[in-house]
Every structure is written in C-alpha cells, then in structure tokens.
C-alpha cells in the first residue's frame, strides 16, 4: 500500500474549491436549521440554482461572469420566495418535504431533454468560465504556488482565493446577524414561533429572510463549485443534501464555525476513505472488491450520521447545553 500517496491525497483534500463550496452550503444550512429551525432538505437545489443561474446567464444571455454570479444569487432568492410562500406558514415537517421535492423538481427540470439547448440536459454546462469569463479575471501570473500537497497552479489558486473570500464574507455576515437583535428573534422562532408571534414579531417575514439568506449561501456554494468544475445535474442530488446535513451536524448546527469545520472534517474523511478503502481491498486486507470498497464509504457516512445525531446532537463544536433539537 502506498501510504505516501494516500496521505498526500488526504492532505490535499483539506483545501479544495469543492470543500469551500460545500462549507458555504453548510453555512446556509446552519442559518436555516441551526439558527432559524427551518427544516430545509433542498439545499442541493439552492446550490443548483446558483450554479445554473451563473452558467446560463453567461452562456445563454452573454452576461459577464460577475453579473452571471449575481444572477445566480438572485435566482436563489426567487427560489426561496417560491418555496417559502406556500410552506413557511405550515408545520416544519411540511417544509422538509416541500424543500426536498422542490430541489428534485429543479434537478429534473435541469435534466430533461426538453430544455437541453439551455441546460445541457444530462451533460450539464461547461465553458462558461473561459474566454472573458471567471478564469480570465485571474489576477495571479502563471506559475506554481504553495507547498507539498498544497501545490496549485495559478488557476486553482484563483478559485481557492475567490472561494475563501466568499466563505469569509459569508461567515462574517452570519456572525454579525446572529449576535444582533435580528438573530435573537430568529433564534426565538426556532424555539417556539407562536410565542414570538404573540410578542408582535412578524414571524413569517423573519423566516422568509432567514430562508433567503441561507439560500444565498447555498447558491454561493453552487457558484464556487461551478468555478472549478462543470455544472452537472448529477451533482445536485438528494444525497448531496444529506451529506451537507451530516457535515452540519458534525460541526454543530447552531454555531458559526462548526459548519465550516464540519465540512472540512467530513470531506477530508471522505477523501481519506476514498483513498484507503480501495487500497485496503487491493492489498487483500479488506475481503471486498474495489467497487464494494467505494460503496462502503457511503455506508460509513450513514452510520456516522446516525451516531452523531443520537450521541452528540450538538455536534463537535456545539455547547453541550445547547442541544439544537427542540422537542
């Protein structure tokens, strides 16, 4: 077994545009579930809206890359409104079902051949970063940067710096919101919305604002992801939503840095397992085939999710008293 390359790949997984994208989406989930108590199971849909909104704006409407990104964010606001208006007045579990359904509707709409000229159907979209796009806005001169497993060419560096900047701004924003009186109302709604309503707060408006802000974070995650890979409908599946939830709960739902750290831990662990399980299978230590070893990784994710929720619901970084689950 090549421990060197396994270690190298795992360490490289610590900082990738993908991790930054997932951390952003998890931050959005923290806003939704951790702070506002909204059971959003459609975060993959928000990511898809951001990514497609960006790519389609550039490819079909010829907008500059930054305007395309703004369009992606704007589309997520509209998506939040469409989803929130019918469901935010209802009990929480309805929101869970509607958000998961809405995300699936979106994915099927992006996947169908009916809109292929715009959405690329199953092939997805690509090429929107080139020729005058995001990639050309790269301020870094060509060359290799970094050290050891963290060696990047100028393109990857630009993606990373961009992603890190967006993530930093989003984290700061979430922190500023949650320490304010606005955050107090939102947390109150998480605990008991009728009580907050009885105090004269427009609960619906606050929930909608929280849904929109978390949705924007999700969309930004999709956009950051889209800067580094193609936009493909196969990415924004329900499983992705569940993985993001796992990362959120791992870090601690009602914390500011928990979602970011949870994402890093989750995806680094994934990278590690992706490397080590097939290697173990190959060297005969695990009596399974290579494909089975890859599957085993997801089995472990499922078991891990169950164990966290049962034994450490506040997450790794959450306050023990601050159980995030309201009875």
């Amino acid at each position: 077994m090549d421990w060197g390359s396994i270690l190298n790949n795992t360490l490289a997984g610590l900082l990738t545009p993908t991790i930054l994208a997932f951390a952003l989406a998890t931050l959005g989930l923290a806003m939704h579930f951790g702070f506002a108590g909204l059971l959003n199971f459609g975060i993959a849909g928000f990511m898809a809206v951001g990514a497609y909104g960006y790519a389609i704006s550039v490819l079909t409407f010829g907008l500059p890359w930054w305007a395309g990104m703004i369009m992606g964010v704007a589309a997520s606001v509209v998506f939040a409104l469409i989803m929130g208006i019918p469901t935010l007045r209802l009990r929480g579990d309805y929101l869970a079902i509607v958000t998961i359904a809405a995300a699936e509707i979106l994915r099927l709409l992006f996947l169908t051949t009916a809109f292929e000229p715009v959405t690329g159907s199953a092939d997805g979209l690509f090429g929107y970063n080139n020729s005058g796009g995001f990639a050309d806005a790269n301020p870094f001169p060509p060359g290799d940067y970094g050290w050891g497993p963290w060696t990047y060419n100028e393109q990857t560096l630009w993606m990373l710096v961009f992603g890190l900047m967006v993530l930093a701004v989003a984290t700061l924003l979430l922190w500023a919101l949650m320490r304010s009186p606005w955050g107090r109302v939102v947390k109150g709604i998480r605990e008991d919305e009728d009580a907050v309503r009885a105090l004269g707060k427009n609960v619906f408006a606050y929930k909608m604002q929280a849904l929109i802000i978390g949705g924007i974070f999700g969309a930004l995650g999709g956009i950051v992801l889209a800067t580094s890979t193609n936009v493909s409908p196969g990415v924004y599946v329900t499983s992705l939503t569940f993985f993001l939830w796992t990362a959120l709960l791992l870090g601690g739902a009602a914390t500011i840095f928990g979602p970011v750290l949870g994402s890093i831990i989750f995806w680094v662990l994934q990278a590690f397992l992706t490397n080590i399980l097939p290697a173990l299978a190959e060297s005969g230590i695990l009596p399974v085939s290579g494909i089975q070893a890859a599957t085993l990784r997801y089995v472990l994710v499922g078991i891990g999710l169950m164990l966290i929720v049962i034994y450490r619901p506040q997450g790794i970084f959450g306050d023990k008293r601050e159980m995030t689950f309201v009875k």
């Binding site: 059971l39 929480g92 569940f242 085993l296 997801y298 089995v299 499922g302 999710l305 929720v309």
Partner: peptide
Amino acid sequence: LALVQLMIVSIGLSLTARY
C-alpha cells in the same frame, strides 16, 4: 430523542441501507 433527531437518524439509516 426529538422528532427532528429521529428524522435525521432515519436519513442516516436510509443512506446506510441503500449503500
């Protein structure tokens, strides 16, 4: 366990069983 917790446990179970 709270209902939301149970629901997320069921999601974990679903992933485990599916794979």
